[in-house]
């Protein structure tokens, strides 16, 4: 048995965490709550992508995690710029 098979025990915990973030994102009374949970959701998904890259033994697909991290941050920036109620370009 290969060493990565033990990862099977850890992946369900990450899934439970992700589902809890989704519950908060869909429930979230205000917009900042939703954005914050999407934040956590995106970073947890980035971790899950790296774990699956090891788990499925396909190292070449790792670049997706980097790109996901970057764009989740960009979503944060857009939403806080929107909430600040200024012109978007200033």
């Amino acid at each position: 048995m290969m060493i990565v098979e033990y990862l099977t025990f850890f992946i369900p915990f990450y899934l439970i965490g992700i589902i809890m973030y989704v519950v908060r994102a869909l429930k979230g009374p205000t917009i900042p709550d939703t954005v914050l949970s999407i934040d956590c959701l995106g970073y947890a998904l980035a971790a899950l992508l790296v774990i699956f890259s090891v788990y499925l033994q396909s190292p070449l697909i790792i670049a997706c995690a980097i790109v996901l991290t970057l764009w989740i941050y960009a979503l944060d920036v857009y939403m806080s710029k929107y909430l600040e109620k200024k012109e978007l370009g200033e």
Partner: peptide
């Protein structure tokens, strides 16, 4: 990201 969001909120 969290800081920017908290400040805006």
């Amino acid at each position: 990201g969290s800081h920017l969001l908290a400040k805006a909120a």
